[in-house]
Design a protein around this nucleic acid. Sequence first.
DNA 1: TCACCTCATCGCGATTTACTTATATGGCTA
DNA 2: TAGCCATATAAGTAAATCGCGATGAGGTGA
Lengths: 118, 118
Amino acid sequence: MYEDEAQIYRALADPTRLRILALLRVREACVCELVGRLPVSQPAVSQHLRRLRQAGFLTERRQKYWTYYAIRSDLPPMLKEIVAALPHDAADEAWIREQTADLVCTEVKVAPRASTRS
Amino acid sequence: MYEDEAQIYRALADPTRLRILALLRVREACVCELVGRLPVSQPAVSQHLRRLRQAGFLTERRQKYWTYYAIRSDLPPMLKEIVAALPHDAADEAWIREQTADLVCTEVKVAPRASTRS
DNA sequence: TCACCTCATCGCGATTTACTTATATGGCTA
DNA sequence: TAGCCATATAAGTAAATCGCGATGAGGTGA
């Protein structure tokens, strides 16, 4: 009794996952984009995305190198309201809006690696 | 960032707490009434109530022996919607409706103790 | 005042969660 | 097909969570 509902709220019970939802509210994004913005490692982001997907919040789509995650368009009304009610972080939203999806990952992540090539 | 919201959803991330909210949706109740209905111990119920109160869902009121908990009437709209959207359990709602607050605890709990007095 | 009632808190063990690093997977491209 | 890229999974650890029984706190009433 109420296990299913608790499961859904448990998926929302983490600040990083809420931030991911707020970011994806602007537009879909691939894992590496989120990794470039969030203060946790790539596996952590991957695990959070899996949790949100299993709870029914996200869909995934493969394209070229990247896996894009997006908020399900057929979200139940209550969940849609919850997502809509999340606070807006101006910096986060500006950031994800100005990303050019196909460039971010390679461009951003090659730079740091340059130092390891020496 | 998003810590406060996560805190709220964490308070909802447990089936027993959701069931308590659904029960209190019918009417306020004292701890011993909830203990009489839920499949967990009195300390567990007490802790769940504290968690819900700290998250801002409940108020408490003392009267004679009992502490009555109720859903805050000034709940933010989003939280009010969340509580309203919880599934209705007919048996639970019938049960709490037919309780006569002042009788339940002493009546119900004296009986089992009789066997330990022998 | 003292016994009794409800409820809160303490202290503990078991489980879950969220993170890390290391490594595996699988698509893409040369 | 060989190597690279983004992503997923594995394994381990620290902290949070949920349950219990025992006990403490505080009001009530004889």
